[in-house]
Computed example of a mutant assay.
Amino acid sequence: MEGKTKTYKNRGELVFETLKQEILDLELKPGQIISENEICERFGVSRTPVRESVRRLQEQGFVNSVPYSGTQVTLLNLDNIKQMIYMRVAVETMVMRDFMKMATPLWMEEIRYMIRKQQALILEKGFEPEQFYRMDAQMHAIWYQATGKQKLWDMIQAQQLHYTRFRMLDFVTETDFTRIIREHTELFELLEKKDIQGLERSLKEHLYYSMKRMKYQIEVEYKDYFEQEEQED
């Protein structure tokens, strides 16, 4: 990620953190087989730190061991994602209600500034969807921070295994970033007007839109990225 440098305790930690971030950013695709030999060669390490890294990834649900094949990046669970969106709508609605009551001009300017940054980003030639994803997250985090609900936001962000990867897929397949900015602008305007009902309706549509927009991708184009739901008898 841009502007961030990390120090790691050892090479094994570097391997673990790098692979984990690549899984979250979809550089390593759901269902993709990871070769221990390739990892060893890539990082210039022995099998011991690689196997330890893979073990940790498996414990956290990012990969599975597949007999006679190797290590596979886990698939996305659609039901998990739907429930996370449901939870986020419920939580964020309450947080924004609280924010509306106490929003100072300075906090409102923070939101306006993030929207302007998003507008500037999409004018950049060859900008990466990951960059927009980070800015989107930074904007939504503002009302959590302002209301003293940072831990709630951290809990939502910690749902990485399925929800974060789905959000990244959402931005990777998005072709109309101006629509997202329009929705952000609408949320800002409703906050200014203190229109609670309009805000709740707009927020729900905003957070659920990706599920509707990506129906084709989920069912057809990226079908192999998702666990197949069991059919009821």
Rank of each mutant, 00 (worst) to 15 (best):
Y209T: 08
I142S: 08
E92W: 04
L14G: 01
E232W: 15
M102V: 13
G12K: 10
Q160L: 09
G61P: 01
P129Q: 06
Q60G: 05
P49A: 10
V54W: 08
Y133I: 05
H140K: 03
E13K: 13
I85T: 15
Y68H: 12
N37I: 15
L152H: 00
K101V: 14
E192L: 13
W143N: 11
L24A: 10
T18M: 01
T147N: 11
Q228M: 13
M108H: 08
M211A: 07
T48K: 08
A137G: 11
W153K: 08
E22Y: 03
T7N: 10
E2S: 12
Q118D: 10
S69V: 12
M84H: 13
E174M: 13
Q119C: 12
M135G: 07
W107G: 01
K117V: 15
T178Y: 11
M155W: 01
T5D: 12
K193C: 12
G44T: 03
R112P: 01
M96T: 14
D233I: 14
H162N: 15
L24M: 09
L106C: 06
P105L: 06
R116K: 15
S202V: 07
Q160M: 09
Q231D: 06
R201Q: 09
H184Q: 04
K101N: 07
L169C: 08
E232K: 14
V172E: 04
I39H: 00
T71C: 05
R47E: 14
H184R: 00
T147A: 05
Q131R: 14
Q228E: 13
E38A: 15
L207A: 01
S210I: 04
M102I: 15
L191V: 14
Q138E: 08
K212Y: 10
Y113S: 09
M155N: 02
E200Q: 12
E219T: 12
Q58S: 09
E17D: 09
L207I: 08
L26P: 01
Q197V: 12
L207M: 06
D224W: 02
W107S: 14
I156N: 01
G70D: 00
E22P: 00
E183Y: 10
V220M: 02
Y222C: 10
Q131H: 13
E221W: 06
Q138L: 08
D25M: 02
L78P: 04
P105M: 08
V63A: 02
A120Q: 07
G44C: 06
I196F: 07
M94F: 06
R55N: 11
K29C: 04
I196G: 07
L24F: 06
Y113Q: 11
L26Q: 03
I156R: 01
K215H: 13
L199D: 06
E2F: 10
V91R: 02
H162M: 09
T175V: 14
A158H: 00
R213K: 15
S202K: 05
W153G: 07
A120H: 07
R56K: 15
T185M: 09
K223L: 11
F43V: 15
I81E: 00
V220E: 02
F177V: 14
Y133D: 05
N77Y: 03
L190C: 14
T93N: 03
T147P: 09
E109V: 09
P49Q: 07
V45D: 03
P49E: 00
